[in-house]
Computed example of a mutant assay.
Amino acid sequence: MISILFDRALRGLAVLSAGILGVIAVFIALNVVLRNLGLPVVYGALDAIQYALMIATFLGAPWVLSIGGHVKVDLITSNLTEGTSRALTRLTSAIGAVTAGVLGWYGLQAVLASAARGSMIRTSFVIPEWWMLAFVPLSLGLCTIIFIRRLLFPETAERSLSGL
């Protein structure tokens, strides 16, 4: 039950990420049309797009990892025996969990330090810096959980998408 809810949360974040990317596309097209008509562009759109790209990336990354849609080279692993492949999946999942966990921990420390300092981002608009930094530990925490799930249940990693 928890796994189903977790997967639904990941899909929800992916949908939110896709929605953000859709809004970005609309604002880029709108700014191009306005500029070509000699009208003023949407104020702050460039800054908002930069932040939205970061947010969409970090919100969508755990879902992409969970479905195996990330870039990977499977030339060697596709020719391994099932047992060896499963062991390698466990090893890479352990490395991924440790890496994502450590980066997420340091990301959380950056969020807390930024909030404590009261750091602000001053561009077209002014927002607290920690608002943008908060997406990093959230995303990496979810990725850590996905790697741990693959470590414990390597068959979930087998449903990944394959390109070549």
Rank of each mutant, 00 (worst) to 15 (best):
A110Q: 10
G101Q: 10
F6R: 07
S78A: 12
S114K: 09
S162K: 14
A29K: 14
L5Q: 08
I55P: 00
W130L: 01
G83Q: 12
Y51T: 08
F135W: 06
A9L: 04
P137E: 05
V33L: 03
S93E: 11
E129D: 07
R86M: 05
G107H: 08
A100C: 11
A94Q: 15
D74G: 01
T156W: 08
A18E: 02
G163F: 15
F27D: 04
F6K: 03
F147E: 04
F147L: 07
V71D: 07
S162N: 15
S85L: 12
R8M: 08
I67D: 03
I127R: 01
G101T: 06
S119V: 07
I145P: 09
V126N: 03
V102S: 13
L13C: 11
A116C: 10
P137S: 04
L13W: 05
V136A: 05
T89D: 10
F135Y: 04
W105T: 13
N31L: 11
G141Q: 06
T77L: 13
L21V: 09
L16V: 03
L30W: 15
A157R: 02
A45W: 05
I121Y: 02
L53V: 10
E158N: 12
G19I: 07
A116S: 15
S160M: 11
L53F: 09
L46P: 02
R8E: 11
P128M: 06
L164H: 13
Y51Q: 06
L88I: 11
A48D: 00
I4P: 08
G101D: 08
V136C: 01
V98F: 12
S139K: 02
V136M: 09
L80M: 14
S162H: 15
T89H: 01
F153Q: 09
A61F: 09
Y106W: 14
T92V: 12
I121S: 03
G163D: 14
I127E: 04
W131R: 04
L13P: 03
W105A: 13
A29I: 13
N79I: 06
V42N: 04
D47I: 00
I2G: 07
T77E: 12
S139Y: 01
L152M: 15
G104P: 09
W131D: 00
L53M: 07
T123C: 01
T89S: 14
